[in-house]
């Protein structure tokens, strides 16, 4: 389980580098973010929440059931919109209102 950073979408703002609780993301010579320690991601999704250009997506390693889908999230007006896209580009959206508490 780890993240993928799409280089063409990265604007080099460095927000993901700041947010990663494990100091795992660094800047390359083009000034763009890359994942230095791919196997050391905890899966907290902090970087994805910080990225304003949607450049980062999260995936499960095949060792824990990953089959090629990715997860990303964007936030607007207190609604977190989680997008799960499978390898055939089928998309599922789950919206979570940040003002709603968990039921469980």
């Amino acid at each position: 389980m780890s993240i993928r950073i799409t280089q063409s979408k990265c604007v080099g703002c460095g927000m993901c580098i700041e947010a990663c609780p494990g100091n795992l993301i660094k800047k390359n010579s083009d000034g763009k973010a890359y994942m230095l320690h791919e196997r050391d991601c905890w899966g907290c999704t902090s970087c994805i929440k910080e990225c304003k250009t949607g450049a980062i997506r999260f995936f499960l390693g095949a060792d824990i059931g990953g089959r090629g889908s990715t997860l990303s999230v964007s936030e607007k007006n207190n609604i977190s919109t989680w997008k799960i896209e499978d390898p055939n580009e089928n998309v599922k959206i789950i919206e979570v209102n940040k003002n709603d508490a968990n039921k469980y």
Binding site: M1, S2, R39, W42, G43, L60
Partner: peptide
């Protein structure tokens, strides 16, 4: 293996 840091407590 690949997901060695998929653990309960923060690996950091």
């Amino acid at each position: 293996g690949f997901s060695r840091h998929k653990m309960w407590y923060p690996p950091f």
